[in-house]
Structures are given as structure tokens and as C-alpha cells.
């Protein structure tokens, strides 16, 4: 069996981090992904919540260690040392709160400074509210981000739309980055 096949057969463990402002739905996304459930009530995260989930990407089994970091606000700043050893991160913002995009982009900058050029995706959560008057994100700004090479995905932890795809996509990116999968 070739080296490549050996790599593909072994279960890989990858650490990823959820980053974003408070109350954008990071924990809800993780709960939706790991346990397939959603609770409407907001429960703030203190410190870090660690969950695990196994998935398969193009026949490669991966065990994700998901670090759900407390949302950033005036009292809680990103402890960049939590990013140690992470293979990728998900930047989460809330489509009804323009400020959360600003926070996510600032955290992206901090993460870049600490971890370098690793895989990430930017997600706009609460997409189930997209057609309501509460939806506030500036589409032009998002288009500009996409044009700059940032992959923007839309999710709803409430309905589950787009959630699995985000983790699949990030995992695929990480595997490609580490040459486990061919770049496509």
C-alpha cells in the first residue's frame, strides 16, 4: 500500500476553534453539529467548551476536537494561546448584528498573527432570519470579503441549514493543506 493510502486509512485528529463575538451562535452551531439539537435560549460560554465529532471526508476519517471559545466582548478577550495546535478555525458572525462581523474580522487578524496562514471559513449564522427586517449585514462588504479570497458560508443553527457543510468544508481544506487530500 502506498504512503498516501496509509495516510488516508489512519484516523486523523484535528483541532479546530470557533471564534466570534458573543451570542452569534458558536455553541449552538457546535451542538447542532455534534448532537443535532438546537435550543432557542442563549447560554453564554465561559472559557472553552470542548466537543468531539468524527466525520469522513473523501474516505479519510477525521476526529475533530472542537474548541468552542467564549465569545469576545468588553470583559472577554481572545486568549490566543488557546489556538496552539489548531489546524483551522471557523469565524462566526450573526447576520442580524453588523458589529459581529467587525469582531469576527478582528479575531481573524489576531488568529492570523498567532497561528499563521491556516485554514478557516467565515460563516454568517442565523440565516433563517435572512428575509426578515432584522437582517443587517452589508452585502457589499461581504462581496468585497469574498473577492479578497475569504470563503463566506451561510448557516442556521436553528434549522441546521449549512451546518454540516461548514465542518466538512473546513476539514477538507485542512486535509488539503496538510496534503492528505489532493488539492481540487
Amino acid at each position: 500500500m502506498s504512503d498516501v493510502n496509509n495516510k488516508v486509512n489512519a484516523v486523523l485528529q484535528k483541532k479546530i476553534c470557533m471564534l466570534g463575538a458573543f451570542s452569534v451562535g458558536k455553541s449552538s452551531l457546535v451542538t447542532r453539529y455534534v448532537e443535532s439539537i438546537f435550543g432557542d435560549k442563549y447560554h453564554t460560554t465561559v472559557g472553552v467548551k470542548i466537543s468531539k465529532k468524527e466525520l469522513t471526508v473523501e474516505e479519510q476519517e477525521v476526529k475533530l476536537i472542537i474548541w468552542d471559545l467564549a465569545g469576545q466582548d468588553d470583559l472577554t478577550r481572545l486568549r490566543t494561546s488557546y489556538l496552539r495546535g489548531t489546524s483551522g478555525y471557523i469565524l462566526v458572525c450573526d447576520g442580524t448584528r453588523p458589529f459581529s462581523l467587525k469582531v469576527a474580522l478582528n479575531m481573524h487578524k489576531e488568529a492570523r498573527e498567532y497561528s499563521g496562514d491556516i485554514s478557516f471559513v467565515l460563516i454568517i449564522n442565523k440565516f433563517d432570519l435572512q428575509s426578515s427586517t432584522d437582517w443587517e449585514l452589508d452585502q457589499e462588504q461581504l462581496s468585497a470579503l469574498e473577492a479578497s479570497g475569504i470563503e463566506v458560508l451561510y448557516t442556521s443553527a436553528k434549522t441546521g441549514d449549512g451546518v454540516d457543510e461548514v465542518f466538512q468544508k473546513l476539514t477538507k481544506k485542512m486535509l488539503q493543506e496538510h496534503n492528505v487530500l489532493e488539492n481540487t
Binding site: T45, V46, G71, L75
Partner: peptide, 20 residues
């Protein structure tokens, strides 16, 4: 501590909604 932070963040969310 979570409960204390929750109160703070609920207030911050309300402030953000008002600002919008």
C-alpha cells in the same frame, strides 16, 4: 460566573439592538 456574564451579555445585546 456564567450567570454573571450572561446578565452582562444580555444587557450588551439589548444595547446593541437599541444602537441598531
Amino acid at each position: 460566573e456564567a450567570s454573571r456574564l450572561q446578565t452582562f451579555r444580555d444587557q450588551a445585546l439589548e444595547k446593541e439592538r437599541l444602537e441598531i
